[in-house]
Design a protein around this nucleic acid. Structure first.
Length: 493
RNA sequence: GCCAAGGUGGCAGAGUCCGGCCUAACGCAGCGGCCUGCAGAGCCGCCCAUCGCCGGUUCAAAUCCGGCCCUUGGCUCCA
């Protein structure tokens, strides 16, 4: 059985076959002008599961996920609170927090996380090539891609240039030959009006608004355009032709369309062989986005739900579909995850039980494990069908529960196989952590300590100081120091 | 206006590419029962679906074809 995948480029389901030895995977990363929200994390998580499944199938995966650290929106935040005094400082701060989020979500590391600011020479080379080949032109120190020169323009998104309502930024139109031409290189720094437009707070612009980084180029001082960096970075870290390009559906046009135009015009080779687009996360019927302000930060979600619930939530819909975020949906994800976790624990406990020497053979259990593996693989090979893959695991949970329920003698071989399936498929492929719950332990510990302190407070209130002191000593023995102060009781451990 | 994705039970959401095992998965919620000091977990059983609408193809359609209605996204920064 082989992996098949829905390719936006052709609109069809296709058998997946990497071009070379390794699978070259590029994920369109984040513009780091804010912390990441759950919509971003959905793309990462699905890309992560794809990566894990490809590895599971035996492929070597080279996975590149970029950070766009050169952008007007980043510049607009310069000087805000303690974000940093320069574009790159601000970006670095957000990158650090995004990496933190990614770790929190139990994502496998990408091979590289390249930044735009580190690839300006490659970008300039690419732009020069495009000019040399007649696909780009210079105007007042900026360079634009000439969409009419690239005859395949629109092939990804099926857009026809003359039928679109509006194209491009009206301010730039004067120097562009065609309204859909897009900037490869922008003269000078970021303009005050752009800074003002992207400001998140209401600080006055001031006499010297930040302009962001600029670099020397054959066309003078300037900055790279938006789309060019992905072309430069994927070529640098992967190859002219990559296997899989992943990104959110909202990037199909113009971003991905423009990437194709630039890269293919420059190299004459196909840019990406399989384009996989993830459906957007919505809240109450509209997409979760920074501009709409209806987002939920990854860090907050991790604190509230933990990585396993979030990953189970993402895995309850396939990557290409839209998904709605709601408290109810998260509650359901929690139930699903806990059902898996409990069944896993039940199986482990049964194997470790006192009657571990008794034995039985349960063909039903063993068959169920085998079926789980087959169904899981079939689901994943069917365009990364994580929803059905998870369903297969949940059916295994039922099989385990049935086997253990009210039984005296267990089938240890069968249970062991079930545990392995949970850990290998749920853990290794879906990235769920059955490992005894390091996740959420800190939160739980705090909650428990506070619970004990509540009891202790009640005892003190009632004048039972002896009992209260015992509780304090008991906590101390566990490494938790309790201190009563003027404004209440604090603890540390 | 143009492009794309989608409309399946109370909710959520597979299945649609390759028509029949779909008498529609998995789960949540709800209702019985078992177990249980109580609760939870678990187990067994049940309830809820004219698969957006209309027409067509076919022995057979949620699945294919045509038309229509509605939702979301893209065409401006966006994962």
């Amino acid at each position: 059985m082989t992996l098949s995948v829905t390719n936006t480029l052709t609109g069809d389901r296709e058998e997946f076959e990497p071009a070379g030895e390794e699978v070259l995977l590029y994920v369109c990363g984040l513009t780091v002008s804010d912390d990441a929200h759950l919509g971003h994390a959905r793309v990462w998580t699905h890309a992560d599961v794809m990566h894990r499944w490809l590895s599971h199938l035996g492929y070597e995966v080279r996975h590149v996920e970029n950070f766009t650290d050169v952008n007007e929106k980043v510049v607009a935040r310069v000087g805000e609170d303690d974000l940093g005094g320069s574009e790159l400082d601000v970006a670095e701060g957000f990158i650090a927090s995004v990496i933190e989020d990614m770790r929190g979500l139990n994502l496998k590391r990408a091979t590289v996380y390249p930044r735009v600011s580190e690839h300006v020479p490659e970008i300039i080379d690419l732009v020069e090539t495009l000019i040399d080949r007649g696909y780009a032109y210079e105007a007042n120190g900026s360079v634009y891609f000439d969409v009419t020169a690239f005859e395949d323009y629109g092939k990804l998104s099926n857009q026809h240039l003359d039928e679109m309502e509006s194209q491009g930024n009206p301010d730039e139109r004067s120097e562009k030959r065609h309204p859909a031409d897009f900037a490869l290189w922008k003269a000078g720094g970021v303009s005050p009006s752009d800074v003002a437009e992207h400001r998140k707070d209401d600080r006055p612009l001031g006499d010297h608004p930040p302009t962001g980084e600029t670099w020397d180029s054959p066309w003078g001082e300037g900055r790279p355009g938006w789309h060019i960096e992905c072309s430069a970075m994927s070529t640098t870290h992967l190859d002219d032709t990559i296997d899989i390009h992943v990104g959110g559906h909202d990037l199909v046009f113009p971003h991905h369309e423009n990437e194709i135009a630039q890269s293919e015009a420059a190299t004459g080779e196909q840019f990406a062989r399989y384009w996989l687009h993830t459906g957007l996360l919505e809240t109450a019927g509209e997409k979760m986005s920074s501009s709409l302000g209806n987002y939920f930060y990854v860090a907050d979600a991790l604190a509230e739900f933990g990585p396993n619930v979030i990953r189970t939530f993402y895995c309850s819909t396939n990557y290409g579909s839209e998904q709605t975020f709601s408290e109810a949906a998260m509650a359901e994800a929690e139930e699903r995850w806990e059902r898996l976790e409990r069944a896993h624990e039940t199986a482990v406990d049964a194997c470790d039980g006192v009657d571990a020497r008794t034995k039985a053979e349960d063909e039903t259990l063993r068959t169920a494990v085998a079926e789980t593996r087959t169904e899981f693989a079939a689901a994943m090979n069917d365009d990364f069908g994580v929803r059905e893959a998870t369903a297969a695991l949940l059916e295994l949970a039922t099989a385990v529960n049935r086997h253990v329920d009210g039984r005296e003698a267990y089938d240890y071989v069968g249970l062991r196989r079930a545990v392995e399936a949970f850990e290998e498929l749920g853990g290794g492929v879906l990235g769920l952590d059955f490992g005894g719950g390091t996740e959420g332990d800190a939160r739980l510990a705090d909650d428990l300590i506070e619970l004990v302190l509540d009891v202790r407070a009640a005892e003190r209130e009632a004048g039972n100081y002896e009992r209260a002191d015992e509780l304090r000593d008991d906590l101390e023995a566990l490494g938790v120091t309790v201190e009563d102060g003027a404004d209440g009781t604090t603890y540390r451990y």
